[in-house]
Design a protein around this nucleic acid. Structure first.
Length: 357
DNA sequence: ATTATGCTGGACCTGCTAGC
DNA sequence: GCTAGCAGGTCCAGCATAAT
């Protein structure tokens, strides 16, 4: 079946009896003087003929696609929510966002998606801390398409114009302090090494937190990818626990924390009497489980906004310079070309001692 | 004569194909 | 192998006309 010829602005110009430039001006609502009659005529003709804008042609002409490419390791969870927020943010600035998933941290799939996005001439790329090597990334994006990273630490700025990172170090530090203050004298981090950089940041924060406590506390870091079931992780914790004070648990994310909480409750322990548990992400499910789960809240909108600002700046878009609250007011830290977004601990029943009768 | 308004003409964008 | 032409838009200099 041959494709039906598409209606173009040439057809509209002919039918409406004006030039194609006038049609372009009307349909793009450019601020050029035009009579209301011309505007009405063009709009009506476009409507009647069923015109649909050809973005490829527009990109060709403007040498700009107004399309951004985004690569996330997986759809769902934090990445799903962040992609949604990014999409909203990009749309607000007149950009369309194409989001691809790298199916975990598969460097081959990452490379393929990045290739496709560059072939499509996206104006910019927004990526997680990539699994593919920095050299390969440099080679791929080295031709002028700006790359803004999120949750990527230590990438040189000849590859990425900047990175907007969640401050897991301070966040986990605070979570450890919170668990200690709530009476925990054994503290365990349930890690997820398959998520590389973000896990390393959490580990660093966990260690920082422990080192700042007034006394040394038995601790462990259990990799949830290593143990067969979450019950095995619980058994490992039981071997460490002296039963004199509750155990504090910090999970890699809310899903892991909730899985652990279920295992604990199945085994007949009580939360928060025996186990005091915290997660990361502040997923909506944290307020519908029992007891409600303490979690580190992620300011998605702020992270998306800062990512968009870096991108607009790299694209020479003056809107990036518009007045926004000062970094101090938002507790943002800048380390070189990296921006650190603060996390906020939301304490709920799963970890609070004094809420008990 | 000068200025403002409303519109037009044509160069240009990139990558591919057809013709020479 | 080289060149011209095409796709469907954008952009801007410049034109015709009306108003001052």
């Amino acid at each position: 079946m041959s494709k039906k010829r598409q209606i173009t602005i040439v057809d509209i110009a002919e039918a409406a009896g004006v030039s194609i430039a006038t049609v372009s001006n009307v349909l793009n609502r450019r601020n050029v003087p035009m009579t209301p009659e011309t505007i009405r005529k063009v709009e009506q003709t476009a409507e009647q003929l069923g015109y649909r804008r050809n973005v490829m042609a527009a990109s060709l002409s403007r040498k700009k696609s107004y399309e951004l490419g985004m690569l996330v390791p997986v759809f769902g969870g934090y990445h799903g929510q962040f992609a949604e927020e990014m999409q909203r943010m990009a749309h607000g600035y007149g950009y369309h966002l194409s989001v691809f998933s790298a199916a975990g941290f598969d460097p081959e799939i990452e490379k393929r998606h990045l290739d496709v996005l560059l072939q499509r001439r996206v104006d910019g790329l927004i990526c997680h801390g990539l699994a593919m090597s920095q050299e390969a990334t440099r080679h791929l994006v080295g031709e002028g398409t700006p790359l803004v990273l999120f949750n990527a630490w230590g990438w040189p700025n000849d590859i990425a114009v900047g990175a907007v990172n969640l401050d897991f170090v301070d966040g986990c530090d605070e979570a450890v302090r919170h668990l200690y203050e709530q009476g925990c004298r054994t503290i365990v981090y349930l890690a997820k090494t398959s998520l590389y950089a973000t896990d390393l940041q959490r580990r660093a924060g966990f260690r920082n937190g422990l080192s700042k406590l007034p006394e040394p506390v038995p601790y462990d870091m259990i990799d949830s990818d290593e143990v067969e079931t979450i019950d095995q992780a619980l058994e490992q914790v039981e071997r460490l626990w002296n039963r004199e004070a509750p155990v504090g648990i910090l999970g890699f994310d809310d899903v892991i924390s909730l899985a652990f909480m279920s295992a604990v409750q199945r085994r007949g322990y009580r939360v928060p009497e025996d186990f005091r548990i915290a997660g990361i992400n502040n997923d909506p499910v944290t307020t519908v489980c029992h007891p409600m789960l303490t979690s580190l809240d992620i300011p998605y909108a702020l992270q998306a906004e800062m990512t968009m600002m870096l991108m607009l700046e790299a694209l020479g878009d003056t809107r990036a310079l518009k007045q926004s609250p000062a970094d101090e007011a938002r507790k943002l830290k800048r380390i070189g070309h990296e921006i650190q977004i603060p996390l906020r601990l939301i304490a709920r029943r799963s970890s609070i001692a004094e809420a008990l009768e």
